[in-house]
Design a protein around this nucleic acid. Sequence first.
DNA 1: TTTTTGGTTCTCTATTTGCAGAACCAAAAA
DNA 2: TTTTTGGTTCTGCAAATAGAGAACCAAAAA
Lengths: 155, 155
Amino acid sequence: METIKLNAKQLDLIEKLGLIFEQGLQPAAARIAALLLVSDKLELTFDEIREVLNLSKSATSNALNMLLTLNRIEYITKPGDRKRYFKSNLSDWKETMKDKFMEFEKVNKTMREVLSQRPHSTNDFNLKLEEFIHFMEFMNQEIPVLFKKWEQSKK
Amino acid sequence: METIKLNAKQLDLIEKLGLIFEQGLQPAAARIAALLLVSDKLELTFDEIREVLNLSKSATSNALNMLLTLNRIEYITKPGDRKRYFKSNLSDWKETMKDKFMEFEKVNKTMREVLSQRPHSTNDFNLKLEEFIHFMEFMNQEIPVLFKKWEQSKK
DNA sequence: TTTTTGGTTCTCTATTTGCAGAACCAAAAA
DNA sequence: TTTTTGGTTCTGCAAATAGAGAACCAAAAA
């Protein structure tokens, strides 16, 4: 097996990106996600990944399946080749972004619930809370506009 | 000691908010942060917090100090009273938001580093990566504008 | 001067997380 | 039909996390 190799810069970037991705992924999965952005070769097999990152088979298997269900990666196959070739699902980032903003909306809803059950007696606080809620709603409204504006600017 | 009490709705909201806050805080701290938004009484003492949430002294102490250093809460004192009264630092949310968007910028910088070291041979991928980076930069530029727009709209 | 209050810090333990290693398995190749 | 490949699943452990409980402590009160 042709073991793929990474230069110092790439190793450094995997570490940095890995750290960023760990917010939301377990370490092994985070480093795989990073690898698939950084590596010269973009489509890597199970064993190539497992080998450069020094992971066990189980860790590799679990991390890959996790990344697949999260839609962070995908794989292709080649005719006459049993292996799967995993690659970063870069085309899906727009959806991922939208989802992120969506969950923002959930927070907002809960905050509204909080506000609606507060006693009148804490009016000062309630007003600040309301201001915060309004701000989040404002953002929720404006960010889709920004998405569109960006689509426009590309043409 | 007057033990403060919460109704069912409030308990439910603390659980919900707590779950939201756990993304970034440990459970005990998350529930304290939630409590200080939900409780009728807004300024609670160490022992009141400790009691309604059923926490040990150590857990309470550590969580409160954590929330204080994160600027999520603050405390006031009352003349002739040794206790501190902890309350949600709701006025600081704008800063917190800005910080959140700032860290977005750090991700962007790392992504630029990734792009700049990619081989020409993967042009297709590189272009998609660049598009993603451009989008993030676009957002980084436009979001402060949104902040201003909102400030304006309040007047 | 002793006691109480409002915490803080230390020690210890239960739980969770993250992964290794080995056993296992189905499809393809030999 | 047996062997190999490309994984998956199971078992078990080491380390990290989260918090309990007790000991501790400084300032204020008695």
